Simulated scan of single mutants.
Amino acid sequence: MFSDYSTAELVSIFAMQGFAGLILFSVFVLMALGLAIIFGQMGVINMAHGEFMILGAYVTYLISNLFSEYMPALFGIYFFIAMIAAFFTAGALGAFVEWAMIRHLYKRPLDTLLATWGLSLIMQQLYRTVFGAREVGVSLPDWLMGSIPMTDTIDIPINGLFVMGLTIVISVSVYLLMFKSRWGGQVRAVVQNRPMAGAVGINTEKSDRMTFALGCAIAGVAGSAFTMIGSTGPTAGQLYIVDTFLVVVFGGAQSLLGTIASAFTISQAQSTMEFFLSGSMAKVLTLLVVVGILMLRPQGLFALKIRH
């Protein structure tokens, strides 16, 4: 596999594929952050998480067309508006889903899994009805196009750097929100002891709703980032849900650092192997390695230590 390339060529290939995997890494991190918040803090397996990502992608697509048609002079800033709109749209729908369905299924993981899987099918059909079955693409502003040359053979994509910066900002914000804010303390108190949290005045139902909404909102932002690497279609979210669960479980469901490290490892491995192998084989090899590691360390890379 490597014998056909010189050492310099291999270094360039690994560097280029590594930078090319920045957006995939960012999508994995944003998707996994949302899923880790919902699964790690609430114990809810949200099989419709990919559809919330695609909701953010469709919102980005609509705003792109809106600016292109009616405000072409402001087209360069539409992506920031689209990310904010995707965040609040997916978050609002997430809050509604928690109120209408999820809150009735707590402590029933199998029922929750089946219900959210049914929700994913409903959302896919709605997307197909509203936007059609064909995939749609988003036009990026000029400042997100092109790359920065590092050497004669290595270029860094500008959109990859932008999404990486966005991912860092959101990851730090989630950390501060979950571990340094009063609301984050209330969420963790509800997770550890719901009856006691309610007894000291914490609104546990509101905490659950806001937690689920936040996880879905972050998935909406992941959808905006997704528009940079692929076309948006009704079933596109299902292509990433398995990888996202893999990232969360591999990193440790309640570990923010583990989620980021796991996303980086898996995205870079897939991006590099896809250059030498087919995309399907790259996924298979990545899955086999992760499963092998989880057999040795089932709690994930960065499991939280809990005192008994």
Rank of each mutant, 00 (worst) to 15 (best):
G251W: 10
L277P: 14
F275L: 14
V290W: 04
S271M: 04
V242N: 00
D208F: 14
I202Q: 01
L256N: 11
G184V: 00
M273F: 15
N203S: 02
I202F: 02
M196Q: 12
A253H: 08
K206L: 14
T265L: 05
F264C: 04
A236C: 10
S280W: 15
M210V: 02
L285H: 03
S224R: 09
S262D: 01
L246V: 08
L277F: 15
S224H: 07
I293Q: 06
V242Q: 03
I229C: 06
Q238N: 15
L296F: 14
I293F: 13
G230C: 07
G184K: 00
Q270Y: 07
M196P: 09
M228K: 13
A219K: 02
L294Y: 09
E274Y: 12
S207C: 11
G185P: 07
P195Q: 08
G184F: 00
G292H: 06
G252M: 09
G258Q: 09
I202N: 01
F245M: 06
V221Q: 05
T244K: 03
V221M: 05
L287S: 10
K283D: 10
M273K: 12
L257I: 14
Q186V: 02
G184P: 06
I293T: 05
A189N: 07
A197D: 10
T272K: 12
V249Y: 03
T204N: 06
L256E: 11
L256I: 15
V191H: 12
G230Y: 09
M273L: 15
A197I: 06
F275N: 15
G198T: 06
Q254C: 12
N193R: 09
L296P: 13
L257W: 13
K206P: 02
A217V: 01
S224L: 04
A282F: 05
A225P: 08
I266R: 03
